[in-house]
Design a protein around this nucleic acid. Structure first.
Lengths: 201, 201
DNA sequence: CGAAAATTTGACATGACTCAACTGGAGTGG
DNA sequence: CCACTCCAGTTGAGTCATGTCAAATTTTCG
């Protein structure tokens, strides 16, 4: 729904009717079924996507042939490979739906035009990117100051509902370790809480 | 020099005389001697800094009491703790001069006023933050796809002159490993090239 | 010149990985 | 509704990259 985007923008700048209409007329709606891709490696990334419903993931294949997730795209997040989007060079990333999702797409050309027609959007995106940068710094902090196990527990405590929505191996990939290791971490906690239950034989 | 900033902004948006003057009147100049701080942990970060000359580093103290560098600020880079800058909560970061440096400071209040008076700056900062985000993604890629040794060699090949300007322990901290380990990596390369020289006894 | 800081080196410890086998559930087709 | 396959998750053994600690050496700088 286009409304979701307009509502989101209005949290940061106040659009008038005319501006909102201009935006709605320029953007595209995309429905993606679970496991479908909107970007694959070697494609040129032609749009920036706003997730209005569902959940996406952005990953690349590392040198060992394994998927390395760098970002999840939840409701109200923008997701794309900006490197490819900006330069029109082939991407190394995949963007795939984890659930059936609804996206709003903004092609590079449209985005440039809209930024000129609706200058408030410059402010909107400035604020969004500034927030993203702040979040990256925080994530980097955790990466360097916590062990893998702590990072896992911390993530679960911050986003308990989200963790339910995705398979464990994706979380392991995002947090930067192997699914096996995640399983071992969980094993520890299980056995700890088992000790507090009456044993059944 | 204030000119450095104006020149930098003009690379992305075209300022007229009046706008340039407005900006110059609002910003502050700061000279920092090597090893001096412009931000320390528990301070509230009150400004965003543009490095017009010299080199800064941004780091925090990790749980083992060691400095963890998260960012260097070279000429024409903005550097600050945006989390503290935005929220006015105490920072966990230190920002220190690695060399005698000249900075342009922009307080939060001034930045907000300037963004209103000179809307082109919204565009300027939108572009800057977008670039920063793209760079973070790239850095993250390397972090996940290369070994520590590769990341070191890669960094040296990208920024050979910069590596000369800073002590090794800072580079180790930035890249995420210990100075001892960096020394061992270098040791390997030395012995390799020594083999190609005539031996002296 | 002397003190402090930075770097090097070696011995040893360990967290996380790889590989491989196994379990259990979900989906599919006969 | 059962048999089969496939995928996610679990578990264990062995390995390796990198860390820690400590001492020795070199460099920097007042």
């Amino acid at each position: 729904m286009k409304d979701n985007l307009i509502t989101h923008i209005n949290k940061f700048v106040k659009l008038d009717e005319h501006e909102a209409a201009l935006i709605c007329d320029s953007i595209g709606l995309v429905e993606v079924k679970k496991k479908k891709f909107i970007l694959k490696a070697d494609d040129i990334c032609r749009a920036n996507y706003f997730v209005s419903k569902g959940c996406m993931r952005l990953y690349f294949i590392n040198r060992n042939g394994q998927e390395q997730i760098t970002q999840f795209g939840l409701e109200n997040w923008w997701i794309t490979d900006y490197a490819s989007f900006e330069t029109s060079h082939p991407s190394i990333y995949y963007v795939q739906a984890i659930e059936d999702s609804e996206l709003i797409s903004l092609s590079k050309k449209t985005m440039e035009e809209l930024l000129l027609k609706v200058p408030k959007l410059e402010r909107y995106f400035r604020i969004i990117f500034q927030k993203v940068h702040t979040a990256s710094m925080r994530r980097f902090e955790y990466q360097r100051d916590q062990t893998d196990e702590e990072r896992y527990r911390h993530f679960v405590s911050l986003f308990p509902e989200f963790v339910q929505r995705i398979p464990q191996y994706m979380l392991a990939s995002y947090l930067g370790f192997t699914p096996q290791f995640l399983s071992k971490i969980r094993g520890k906690r299980e056995s700890r809480s088992k000790n507090q239950e009456p044993r059944k034989e």
